[in-house]
Design a protein around this nucleic acid. Structure first.
Lengths: 238, 238
DNA sequence: CGACTGTGTATTGTCGACAATCGACAATTA
DNA sequence: TAATTGTCGATTGTCGACAATACACAGTCG
């Protein structure tokens, strides 16, 4: 599973689930609602391009429309929805041109991530990454696309997390979330299964070798390959 | 002056002021309020760290608290304010460590900007940049710090705009806005007056020569120098 | 004298209600 | 018939009111 979305930006690093008490005390209702709606969008329960009905959401969450509207405004700021005056808010959809723009930025950030990781990654973190690689190999062997996809997301999320720059993490996450809104959802990463495996391993090796420029270059290339796969898959459909 | 903040992200490219009719029709009240509050923060009329009073703002803008709250939630998402439950929202302040994190990302983006500019900048755009350089020389000669600062902001804003990637523009703007929340406001760019001049000129020359790697490297260095100046200024104070 | 407790006020959090607007469909007219 | 206009239901935009909470301050007790 992807790291839990947190409107305050403070994601619990260890992935520990806080008690409901803490959660309701720290986060306000609009913030909770925001997380919930974001999940709805990212899971595809709210279809891309679909209009979001405020009253309906309010009824669903058992609140009034006020908190819902606040949450939607936040989601608009993070570009997950778009809002048309007097018409409502819609789940945002991005074109391939826009996905390209995102990839352009993402590649640059990926390079930075690689460089920083090579400097800062600790031994336990490296072990965790390698553990993930092994799991991904298993998923590949079993041809389990869903597991692989989840592991892949987690892998990249850990990479940026371990880079140790919260702003970088935030920017990167926002970008990747946007990528999930691509019209042709499902082929964001057109089944680049086995290929990714070796690429991932090379990245981790470069990090372990403390070779920043190589890690950066490899991670950037990896993002570029992902983009290329997206193009290929998109062309195959169109 | 810095490019007008637009909560929808669609900044008018030519800088044409739309009619009030269009503005009130396209942008909803919370969006307008958001722009207004953001300006208040960026101009320093709302002091860094200060609590923002919802009722007060509502009275000031002649609305109820609803739209104010929506605007504040959006500003929270863009990290210009932080919100504490049942206590209110505060204008965010960033430490030097956080500024460092932002600079880390900004440097990477600046490099990307330089590369893209060298590919895409048109002749008129180059002329506009050179015109700005001349104006900045004038400001330097007149020792007019305020004008220089405004021109400098505009220069960098044009650079990212001309790079022709809206997502990049958005990310970059959000980052630079965050930088303005640095505790020691005023010395974000510790008076690197004349120095910047030659750096800027070198960047524009590299772009004009269509040398992407050089433009990227120079622009990244320029950001690094800016960061260094911030550190120097901060140390001088502490 | 210091710490604790209980009030009062200011502010935020949430809600339900009403006005404004939009889109669709029916009615009208040339 | 086709285009225009009028009307209606649904949904959003905004508001004022009330509840919940936090903070400051006075009062009390050891």
């Amino acid at each position: 599973m992807i790291a839990a979305a947190s409107p305050t930006g403070t994601t619990s690093p260890t992935g520990t689930t806080r008690t409901a008490l803490q959660l309701v005390q720290s986060n306000s209702l609009p913030a909770l609602v925001q997380i919930e709606i974001e999940q709805l969008i990212l899971r595809g329960e709210l279809a891309i391009g679909q209009r979001v009905n405020e009253s309906e959401l309010a009824a669903r969450f058992g609140t009034s429309r006020g908190p819902i509207r606040e949450a939607l405004r936040a989601l608009e700021e993070s570009r997950l929805v778009r809002s048309e005056k007097n018409r409502g808010v819609f789940v945002r959809e991005i074109s391939i041109a826009e996905a390209d723009e995102i990839y352009d930025v993402r590649e640059a950030l990926d390079q930075l991530i690689g460089e920083r990781l090579a400097e800062r990654a600790t031994a336990p973190q490296l072990r965790e990454l390698e553990g993930l690689l092994a799991q991904m190999d298993d998923a590949t062997a079993a041809q389990d696309v869903n597991s692989y996809h989840a592991l892949n997301l987690r892998f990249h999320d850990l990479l940026v997390e371990f880079a140790g720059n919260s702003r970088l993490t935030e920017s990167y996450r926002k970008l990747t979330k946007g990528l999930l809104l691509f019209r042709l959802r499902g082929l964001q990463d057109g089944g680049g299964f086995a290929v990714s495996g070796t690429e991932h391993r090379a990245v981790v090796e470069a990090i372990a070798a403390r070779d920043g420029v190589r890690a950066g270059r490899l991670l950037r290339q990896h993002a570029a390959e992902s983009r290329a796969r997206m193009h290929k898959a998109a062309c195959a459909v169109n």
